[in-house]
């Protein structure tokens, strides 16, 4: 590869990776907008979704070989199982983790999500162990070449899915009653309640939606970068950074933040040093926090922060 082809490759890899951060960040933003909580178990949704899909899609043995599973369902069904499973986990988390603590401060509720993420990670470890797992690529075909950069079919799936999720969310929030109700309870919970919106149920919906986004992200990256039980923490942190870059409340900002973060990471790892890949993310986080508290994209965030109790 020539240097310019390499550059193109770094950007393609970065955008692919960044799409995942974007999906996770979208989940963060959705929950934050509706409940004011930063849900640090967001990355675990991706892990759980992916592991459930893997479990029904291929032969695996769970609980250290105690429970062999050989369903080998077709991929679309496996994805559905993964997403629905994650939604269930998300709803259970809200119902039994967040709701009982609804009178506590937002900060305490955030701590609940951190605890939940550790617990969920432990459960995944018990069931699936420490080995990396992989799903077969969604479509098997030769990778494409663009400006000398190699784009695998799976990268196309990742980018395409992220795009569909963003557009879908936009229409959902703009044009559906449920989406409008969610926005209403985020904008003014009291008024929303007066209008007959069950804001508690809206929290549940937000968690379900975020879990679905996370699970989709987790499933779609598994064919190219595998899934391990401890992947969730890093995904949560990267998604969180992307969310802050995007200005906390803006779904589009979150997506741009995610893509930007992935690209910066990929370029830095390739051009500077691959050993410090993750370190660059946190350098970016600190720079954003120090230079522009409002995020790179968002503007009116001080108000939002105030509302979040930050």
């Amino acid at each position: 590869m020539t240097p310019s082809e390499q550059l193109a490759q770094y950007i393609v890899s970065g955008i692919t990776q960044g799409s995942i951060y974007a999906l996770i960040a979208l989940g963060f933003v959705t929950i934050f907008n509706v409940t004011g909580i930063i849900n640090f178990s967001q990355g675990e949704f991706a892990v759980i979704g992916a592991f459930l899909a893997i479990t029904v899609a291929q032969k695996v043995s769970l609980f250290r070989g105690q429970l062999p599973v050989a369903l080998e369902w077709p991929l679309p069904l496996a994805i559905l199982v993964g997403v629905l499973g994650a939604i269930l986990v998300g709803m259970l988390l809200y119902r039994f983790g967040i709701q009982p603590a609804r009178h506590a401060s937002v900060l305490s509720q955030i701590v609940v999500t951190i605890g939940a993420s550790i617990a969920l990670r432990g459960m995944v470890l018990l069931a699936w162990g420490t080995d990396p797992y992989r799903l077969a690529p969604f479509t098997a075909a030769k990778p494409l070449r663009l400006f000398g950069a190699v784009i695998t079919r799976q990268s196309l799936w990742v980018m395409g899915l992220t795009f569909v999720a963003v557009v879908g969310l936009y229409f959902f929030f703009r044009f559906t009653m449920l989406g409008k109700a969610l926005r209403a309870s985020s904008a003014n919970p009291d008024a929303a309640r007066l209008m007959g919106i069950n804001t508690r149920r809206m929290g549940l919906v937000a968690f379900a939606l975020s879990a679905a986004l996370g699970a989709l992200g987790g499933i779609v990256i598994t064919p190219s970068i595998f899934m391990t039980y401890d992947r969730g923490l890093m995904l949560s942190l990267k998604g969180f950074v992307a969310m802050i870059m995007g200005g906390l409340t803006d779904p589009f900002g979150a997506v741009i933040g995610g893509l930007l973060l992935g690209t910066v990471e990929s370029l830095a790892a390739g051009l500077i040093s691959s050993g410090y890949r993750d370190a660059f993310t946190f350098v970016v986080l600190f720079l954003v926090l120090l230079l522009r508290l409002g995020g790179l994209v968002g503007r009116k965030t001080s108000q939002e922060l105030e509302r979040a109790g930050l």
């Binding site: 590869m1 390499q6 490759q9 770094y10 890899s13 692919t16 990776q17 990396p132 190219s224 970068i225 595998f226 391990t228 992947r231 990929s266 790892a269 390739g270 691959s274 890949r277």
Partner: peptide
């Protein structure tokens, strides 16, 4: 690490 695209590109 499970994403090696940067190193492999280099």
């Amino acid at each position: 690490t499970t994403d090696f695209s940067s190193q492999l590109t280099a």
